Amino acid sequence: MDRVRDLASRQAAVIFTKSSCCMCHSIKALFYELGASPAIHELDNDASGREMERALRSLGCNPSIPAVFIGGNFVGSAKDVISLHVDGSLKQKLIQARAIWVSPVIYEIDQDPEGREMEKALTRLGCNAPVPAVFIAGKLVGSTNEVMSLHLSGSLIPLLKPYQALS
């Protein structure tokens, strides 16, 4: 039981699953769709899987999988998670646990009738390559090279942190 509690508290969203479970797959897909990146622990691929399954049952998980934890707290199984999603509180729980990152607004300028003008404006703003052009908080960060350099230097995440968990 200690291992389950430890794993459940390591990340904002944690799902205990089995690789062959279609409901587990659906719950994982729902979390990804909401913008969360949960830690996934597939019990059938873990040497301690049977022990963890027993521990999950003793915590009230029935059925034992999928077992969803948000912010270290047991939320429920598939039925519970779907109910939370339908009433709108699942995303709120994920936001409160800081499990969801900002969803960027994406403009496909090749699909926009004013795309050529946008491309010229981006070049005038200083984008070496006009696309992709990344803005954070209304400020031009740059194109691929600049964004990758920020990421590799560890500077990108701090720029995004203030915008984490926005809905």
Rank of each mutant, 00 (worst) to 15 (best):
G126Q: 09
D110W: 09
S143A: 11
E114P: 03
N145P: 10
E119P: 00
A137W: 03
D110E: 09
E108F: 06
I136K: 01
G76D: 03
I109D: 02
P104R: 04
P113D: 04
H151Y: 11
A121G: 03
E117G: 10
S83V: 10
A99H: 12
L90W: 02
A97V: 11
G142F: 05
S83P: 06
A121K: 10
V102T: 13
H151I: 09
I95L: 15
A121Y: 04
R98I: 07
G138M: 10
K79Y: 07
D110G: 11
Q111M: 08
A129L: 14
S153I: 09
E119K: 05
G138L: 05
A99G: 15
P113H: 02
I136S: 01
L90A: 07
I70A: 04
P113E: 03
E146S: 06
A133R: 01
L122W: 02
L84Y: 03
G88A: 01
T144D: 07
L84F: 04
S83R: 10
K79T: 15
G126M: 10
L94K: 09
P132F: 01
T123G: 12
R116I: 08
G72Q: 06
G72D: 02
A78W: 06
V141E: 03
V86P: 02
L84R: 06
L152S: 10
W101G: 15
V131H: 00
S103N: 14
F69I: 08
L125V: 07
I95M: 15
K139R: 12
H85V: 13
S143L: 11
P132E: 00
K139D: 05
G76Q: 02
H85C: 13
P132V: 00
E146P: 04
P113S: 05
M148T: 15
I136H: 03
L90Y: 04
G142H: 04
K91T: 09
F74H: 04
P132H: 01
L94R: 09
L90K: 11
G76R: 03
D87P: 00
L152T: 14
E117R: 06
G76N: 06
A121L: 11
S155Q: 15
K79C: 12
E108P: 02
D110R: 10
S103V: 07
D112L: 08
V105C: 03
